[in-house]
């Protein structure tokens, strides 16, 4: 882990493109990130035993958050927010409670990692889910050209090994896309423009991390 892995919570807005002066097209994902107030910090030297910053994102009506969380926000004198997340840091965090993290923590051309929950794909076969090649399309194959083939041996071991890749639910898991480049930062609108695609649907929660 690198020194500081601070980041921002945001919502994926969607994608568009940007033209450079020479006509090169840059595909960008727009993320509405922050502002994220720092709720409190955790210190390795304190009773938390590790360094981290707790941040909140997206203010909501008090009714939306759970009672214990509501009082947690009241304790820290913040309006209720929908999300509370931690960012672990190597050393004691520089941010303190009351600070507000904004998109300005990122600069143009900075390399970041973006985490999101990717779109659910439902129950999928082994070819789409695990990239199996399937069976031949001809030479006697009948009605099973997308099947996995053999899933194990016979009398010994007389079972299928745990973890055998088979058909099943695909997607809707947390994915991090690493090494994306920040193309633009728009402070007033709290927008980040990041080159390339980012996991999840438009409107989904994403975490943008420094590297």
């Amino acid at each position: 882990m690198t020194a500081s892995r601070m980041g921002l919570l945001g919502r994926k807005v969607g994608m568009t493109r940007i033209f450079l002066e020479d006509g090169t097209v840059v595909p960008v994902t727009v993320i509405k990130a922050g502002p994220c107030p720092v709720v409190r910090t955790k210190l390795a030297s304190g009773k938390d035993r590790y360094n981290a910053v707790v941040v909140a994102f997206e203010p909501v009506r008090p009714k939306v958050v759970r009672r214990p969380e509501l009082s947690y926000f009241q304790q820290h004198q913040l309006p209720p927010h929908r999300y509370l997340r931690e960012f672990r840091t190597q050393d004691a965090p520089e941010a303190t409670a009351g600070d507000v993290l904004k998109v300005t923590m990122f600069g143009a051309n900075e390399i970041v990692d973006v985490t999101g929950k990717r779109k659910g794909r439902g129950f999928q076969g082994v070819m789409k889910r695990h990239g199996f090649h399937g069976l031949p399309g001809s030479h006697g194959t009948k009605l099973k050209d997308r099947h996995p083939g053999s899933i194990g041996a016979c009398a010994y071991p007389a079972r299928v090994f745990p973890g055998k890749r088979m058909a099943g639910r695909m997607g809707a898991d947390v994915v991090t896309t690493r090494g994306l480049r920040v193309v633009g930062v728009k402070e007033e609108e709290n927008l980040l423009l990041i080159r390339g695609a980012v996991p999840g649907p438009s409107g989904g929660l994403v975490i943008v991390r420094k590297r």
């Binding site: 807005v13 969607g14 568009t16 727009v30 409107g203």
Partner: peptide
């Protein structure tokens, strides 16, 4: 609402 943000961004450089 999301699409509006994109449209606004694009209109800025249109």
């Amino acid at each position: 609402m999301n699409q509006e943000i994109i449209t606004q961004l694009d209109n800025a450089t249109k």
